[in-house]
Design a protein around this nucleic acid. Structure first.
Length: 465
DNA sequence: AGCCACCTTAC
RNA sequence: GUUGUAAGGUGGCU
């Protein structure tokens, strides 16, 4: 595409002559006139920065690397490069004069672990590219204005930092937390309020209009388009940044009141010293959010409680004699065990080394995120549970009594004992916890097969960070 | 230093 | 049919 300037220019001339705009709907009469009544010098050049060669090129690379989905017009990533080569000059021209109209976003329902469904609005490949370019330009502009207590979706900031801050606040004696979650946040964002906040940073009207058009782009479901008058499409590269721009108002309000808080996207924890204070803050924030941002609080997921009763970013806090510690939330452990069970189901027919090989990267990744957990028992329990699961698998794979006896024999158990255990008639789970299986397949056996030890790798990660 | 693949989590 | 931002991990290549 833009890596061949001459070709692009040529194609551009053709495209413009034809006056055709190939993606999205044709532009109507309401094309904006950004420069009306102004001299050229007064017009903001932000859009020029957006369509700058390097920005578009890196945006392209990112979109393609992510794999992406075909656009509503059938444009796949594979054919995207060729397509863009021909049509980019035309798109570029439309962006520059403010006449570009995004296509509808494709609706994709994904089931949530909690039971409901989350509806994604996935823009076409081209629109993802343009939004990505917008993001690259806008991010550095708005980023410095964000709160130090905002941790979500921001370069250089992580959930781990938010968790450390949360722990610190509680350790300082703020033993009550106001845990607030917004009701269907992305779907309920008010366009006018959001755009007014964006306008604080952006004065190029072409860019503002473009962002608004992205907000208003219809949702395409089964060939039927539904217009959008609120919410941002979940799945657009710009959406996370927009959410932070909007919720910065909330951060400022909390900051003005002198609160200690951590916000990660729409999940905000405010740490206070008493329950009464917490209730007060909760009530005040509900009013603030409703009046200023037109946002509702999700009552089911929000509460004022002690931190040990709430979970935040997959963790909970524990209080061991005044010593505050981070711990993996039980729910997060359950999610892992579900995943492992699923992997083991698939590994029934395969060799133990193979299932361990598929298990290891998953475990390593999980440990990486939960390495802040300061409770050793979680790791020990999981290690034990994991080995027992694998013993269970081995027992199951042996299938018949003679083969189970032979398996125990091969693993060094005396003949009589092997026979007895092999014929005991109990289920696989019972046997996986029995002493004969523990002796036949001790921890050292799994160590030799390079099964990751959760306690050791977590200790290792903790040391080297 | 850089690049690539795979994996995890948060929302 | 799995999008987005961000952080981290493991391995590989030059």
């Amino acid at each position: 595409m833009i890596d061949d300037e001459a070709e692009a220019r040529e194609a551009g001339a053709k495209g413009q002559e034809a006056g055709q705009y190939p993606v999205g709907r044709p532009c109507g009469a309401e094309s904006i006139t950004a420069a009306a009544g102004q001299t050229k010098a007064e017009v903001s050049r932000l859009m020029e920065a957006v369509i700058e060669r390097s920005n578009v090129w890196s945006a392209y690379q990112k979109v393609v690397r992510n794999g992406g989905a075909p656009g509503v017009d059938g444009l796949t990533v594979g054919s995207f490069k060729d397509w863009l080569k021909r049509h980019w000059p035309c798109v570029r021209a439309a962006l520059l004069d403010g006449s570009y109209l995004p296509s509808e976003v494709r609706a994709v329902d994904i089931p949530k672990p909690s039971g409901g469904v989350r509806t994604l609005g996935i823009p076409t490949v081209l629109d993802r590219l343009i939004q990505q370019a917008l993001l690259q330009v806008l991010q550095p502009i708005v980023e410095p204005t964000f709160s130090a207590s905002s941790y979500g979706f921001r370069p250089g900031r992580s959930a781990h930092q938010a968790l450390r801050a949360a722990k610190h606040y509680v350790q300082e004696g703020r033993a009550w937390v106001v845990d607030m979650d917004l009701e269907k946040f992305f779907d309920r964002v008010n366009h006018d309020i959001l755009m007014s906040r964006v306008a604080r940073h952006v004065d190029d009207e072409r860019v503002l209009k473009l962002i608004r058009r992205y907000l208003e782009a219809g949702l395409m479901r089964d060939g039927v388009e539904t217009a959008r008058d609120q919410g941002t499409p979940q799945g657009g590269p710009l959406s996370p940044l927009l959410s932070n721009i909007l919720l910065t108002d909330w951060d400022c309000e909390l900051g003005k009141r002198g609160h200690a808080f951590c916000r990660y996207a729409d999940d905000c924890n405010i740490y206070v010293r008493s329950e009464a204070a917490g209730q007060r803050v909760m009530a005040a924030m509900k009013v603030f959010l409703d009046e200023r941002l037109k946002l509702q609080v999700n009552e089911a997921k929000s509460a004022c409680a002690t931190p040990w009763k709430r979970k935040f970013l997959g963790y909970t806090l524990t209080n061991a004699g005044g010593h505050i510690r981070l711990k993996v939330a039980p729910h997060s452990v359950a999610r892992l065990t579900d995943r492992v069970r699923e992997l083991l189901r698939q590994g029934r027919g395969r060799s133990l080394t193979h299932t361990i090989e598929t298990l290891n990267p998953v475990l390593r990744g999980w440990i990486g995120y939960f390495q802040l957990s300061e409770s050793k028992t979680v790791w020990k329990d999981l290690d034990g549970w994991l080995r027992r699961r694998l013993r269970c698998l081995l027992w199951r794979q042996a299938k018949t009594r003679p083969r189970r006896t032979a398996l125990l024999r091969k693993r060094g158990l005396p003949e009589a004992r092997a026979w007895h255990s092999g014929h005991n008639g109990h289920g696989p789970w019972w046997n996986s916890g029995a002493s004969h299986m523990n002796q036949a397949f001790p921890k050292a056996f799994f160590d030799r097969l390079k099964l990751v030890s959760m306690i050791e790798t977590s200790r290792y990660l903790q040391r080297h960070s």
